[in-house]
Design a protein around this nucleic acid. Structure first.
Lengths: 222, 222
DNA sequence: TCGTGTGAAGCGCTTCACAGCA
DNA sequence: TGCTGTGAAGCGCTTCACACGA
């Protein structure tokens, strides 16, 4: 059952480290844009809004990626982080819910550079099904299982109203999707092998509102 | 403005507890809709996707809000959590960046029930300034300081491209805003007394993508 | 009796400080 | 010399287990 792990390639990465990998990657891509070839942990920490010790500890969970006395090679680290995130080839995502928010994501050109492509759009509304948008045709959610297999879809972005989110989620799970980003303000029930991330904008605003109450003391961030 | 500290009304609330308060509030409002008057910690934990011990510990940080042997009064707890979040009166928010994503938030009718109202819209694009939308008129970001004072704006939702996010952020900070929800994929630099929450959709998708890798390599054979 | 509130134990993440290596 | 990688210490969050009170 146990595989031989080359270096620590299959060692356990702490959850908080996983959440920061996309942040580091973004900072490294910025640095690439500035023609920087090497960054040390202090520089990367400053860009990411953390600190040098955090950066070193995080990256050490992924392997020995730096050079003592020098720092981290930007290009190498970009490649390594992308591989860890599984986005060396773009991941294919389905957009479920062709409303205002869904349309905004469809029109957003920034996903490609971050390793994600929206390759299918689903909705339940018969008036929307058949609409062409960004080269895709809005499809009935009943046809999702076929599309998932045909297009190799692995991720879903759920932008339907809260009232229909669980139903749409069930359809996604039934079609074999194992990762869902849910923008509906409701708790989704899924099997253990399916990952869900909750993106509740109103909740974020409420958290910020809480901190406003304690405006006397110093502010938080993230 | 300081209240007499009855019980622990101004005691320090752990950051993780603050993040769950909006979740509990949402679950309680759902329960209200089902005409439930009392919930115990197990029931609330199930709805929120956590557990009974977590609920009791979290709520105990806010005071003695339950009744032993019974549970928590739904209406009372709703009022208490809303007060703690500072949304008994809606908070006024500015939307900065009238693009696809910003338009989606403007059209979203769900914020009102969560205690937040968008009362002003800003953009830099002269073609967009002057547009009327949802009863609001898109205003130049240069006029933000006036609007913040006039409308009592305390929150900002930043939906501009990454390249102009820091500039818009600086304008918000200069106008006195102390809480910013940033959808641009970039790190914002702000004074210590300003709270920023980062909402990076692509990063969320990358985190989900990471977990897809784990699942496939850890999975049972077949 | 039942369920909350809470000290204490358990656990994981962050920070520190320095050994190790280019 | 300079910076990474890492054990260890520090800290905060979660979970446990039970006293307390309605």
């Amino acid at each position: 059952m146990t595989h031989v792990a080359n270096e620590h390639s299959e060692r356990d990465v702490p959850a908080m480290t996983v959440q920061r990998i996309p942040l580091y990657l973004r900072c490294l891509l910025e640095a690439q844009g500035e023609r920087l070839t090497v960054l040390n942990s202090k520089q990367l920490g400053d860009r990411a809004g953390t600190n040098a010790a955090q950066v070193r500890k995080d990256l050490s969970h992924l392997g020995e990626l730096g050079t003592r006395g020098i720092g981290y090679d930007v290009d190498d680290l970009v490649v390594h982080l992308m591989r860890r995130l599984g986005i060396t080839e773009s991941r294919s995502a389905a957009l479920v819910g062709f409303g205002r928010l869904g349309s905004a994501f469809l029109g957003y050109q920034g996903f490609a550079a971050r390793g994600v492509r929206i390759v299918a759009v689903f909705d339940t509304d018969p008036d929307k099904v058949g609409t062409e948008i960004e080269g895709l045709i809005v499809t009935s959610i009943d046809d999702i299982a076929d599309a998932v297999e045909r297009e190799g879809i692995e991720l879903a972005i759920l932008t339907v109203p809260a009232a229909s989110a669980q139903k749409a989620c069930d359809a996604l799970v039934a079609s074999g999707i194992k990762a869902i980003l849910n923008f509906a303000p409701c708790t989704l029930t899924v099997p253990d092998d399916v990952s869900v991330r909750q993106a509740d904008v109103a909740a974020d605003l409420q958290i910020l509102s809480f901190h406003l109450n304690r405006a006397s003391s110093e502010g938080y961030s993230r």
